[in-house]
Nucleic acid binder design. Sequence first.
DNA 1: AAGTAAAAAGATAATAATATCTTTTTATAT
DNA 2: ATATAAAAAGATATTATTATCTTTTTACTT
Lengths: 142, 142
Amino acid sequence: MLSKSSTYAIRAVLFLSLNSDDEKKFNPKSIAEIIDIPAPFLAKTLQELTKRNIISSRKGRNGGFYLTDADRLNTMISIVAAIDGLEKFQGCSLGLPVCDSENPCPIHHLVAPLRNKLVGELTNKTIASFTKEIKEGHTHLF
Amino acid sequence: MLSKSSTYAIRAVLFLSLNSDDEKKFNPKSIAEIIDIPAPFLAKTLQELTKRNIISSRKGRNGGFYLTDADRLNTMISIVAAIDGLEKFQGCSLGLPVCDSENPCPIHHLVAPLRNKLVGELTNKTIASFTKEIKEGHTHLF
DNA sequence: AAGTAAAAAGATAATAATATCTTTTTATAT
DNA sequence: ATATAAAAAGATATTATTATCTTTTTACTT
């Protein structure tokens, strides 16, 4: 469904959303230790997210990765799109050249609604709203 | 969602379900040509399905792969389970060590119902019922 | 202005998934 | 019995994903 890279990205972004701001930044190594994922790999992932303006970073002394309130308005799907791309959510799930609701493959009617639901929710919901869920104790990161 | 191997397997099995029986068998090369997937790769896939008694084969002259009526009663999930395993449909979608409906990760409530629905449908439906859908023109393989 | 801490970039390595090719074994038709 | 056609098994190759390490650039602090 989601690649490891994407799950790492989501976990790191939500961690930063919960714990960082303009004045409290984190370097990739410490994030990696805290959420228990490989550090150099995470660094690349965060760089990509920074390049796409989904999260913020500052170089040099006292620098690090962090989220601004503006960053927190980005959608969850933008994280997945930046890391994995959205191709895997498009096109026929059986790999047929022709497959749509008019000419469905054998699993089209089974997979398409689920996939649309998932992409839809991730498109509608922001990082902020997922963060709120965690803060209120409805979901968790650890 | 499904690996390429699994999609190849599903397409090949449904093709055999539509076109083969005890007296009409297909070798992997001709199946591969017809449904347009890599032949040697398919051979391995079909061998695995045979070993798991999901499809049938006969060696030697006039041999090949085919489906019996009994084979057609296998579930669709058994194909996926044989090729990919079901691990990817279990466990936390974010990779957290603890994640269930009591202690959900941020995307648990989003992904779990969809995943359960997909696995459920593939568990309930047989190869025969998918074949029927194709025969009646409701879905297609090409 | 100089030193430094950290991101950014780039090079390399390991692993897993996908794909191909070759050899061996088997069943059956003749 | 023998030849043969095809599955089965195994060895090899390629590609994509995941992981690690090193160097360079940047900007802040003193």
